[in-house]
Nucleic acid binder design. Structure first.
Lengths: 145, 145
DNA sequence: GTTGCTGCAAATTTTTTGCAGTCGA
DNA sequence: TCGACTGCAAAAAATTTGCAGCAAC
């Protein structure tokens, strides 16, 4: 039930320090919240999950941006125009997708993806380079049917 | 070079009236802007493309929501957390995707899509119903390389 | 001791809403 | 006429920024 070891705070602090950033109290709190929640969380959700006074909302915004640039979290867009974040394990490019319930907003992580062949063909045909994609699924979950 | 006939204002007005909505001046202006631009436009972009005083920004927001509910435009999320809209032709479900340049934000429309088999499998495996998806590609366009 | 980070407050940006007057069908 | 729609102004929601003090390394 515990998060994987390579996502422990010591390791995460190490990854921050490598980029001359600091593992501060507020950041520890934020990372702990992310470790305890598998689903992508918005800034407001992260802030709400913290103890009152543990970290300012503005600091959550600043931290999430920094953590994203440092490759420690990945940003997802689940269609409601809110930035959401998930912890990334080291070396992971975080490429996966979500299946989101339109009614209750519950989220299932999807490992599968279509073959890169489609992506390559689209890139080639249009002369684009370094092509990636974002893919999210939406539907009605069993509990909401 | 002209937009397809079935997207002319008379036709669009007809589609509105069918749902007891009105084809007002501001809405004609908005629809004209959308007809003249193939790429998905944000509310602010639409407003900027209008003549000063032609339509209030709040009305743009209200109209786009209504037009979306009426199935006349489709909303896209291009990853920057801004709602963008594209005109839909009648009977079209608007299911297509975009290839967006990370540098200059130019947009290419992509007709291709992966087989529905993947979507069905994901739906079945997770017990979800009415599953759809959003898929967008990102890369660097020829001009920006 | 540096340098980066934080809280707080204020400013921006994006989107929504209330309301009285106006317009389309 | 009548309900739907609009502009305007104000509110709400989401995000960013300035700054002086504090904390991590």
């Amino acid at each position: 039930m515990n998060p994987p070891r390579h996502l422990d705070l010591v390791d995460l602090g190490e990854r921050l320090r490598r980029k001359s950033h600091k593992l501060t109290g507020p950041r520890q709190s934020i990372l702990t919240v992310l470790r305890e929640n598998v689903r992508p969380l918005s800034n407001k959700q992260i802030h709400a999950a913290l103890q009152p006074g543990e970290c300012d909302l503005a600091t959550v915004y600043r931290s999430m941006r920094l953590l994203e640039e440092a490759g420690i979290v990945k940003r997802f867009d689940l269609g409601d125009g809110l930035a959401r974040y998930e912890l990334l394990r080291e070396g992971d490019d975080g490429h996966h997708h979500h299946l989101v319930c339109n009614r209750c907003a519950s989220v299932v992580e999807i490992a599968e993806c279509f073959t890169g062949e489609l992506e390559e063909r689209i890139a080639r045909r249009n002369g684009f380079q370094a092509v990636t994609h974002r893919l999210e699924f939406f539907g009605v979950c069993p509990a909401c049917q």
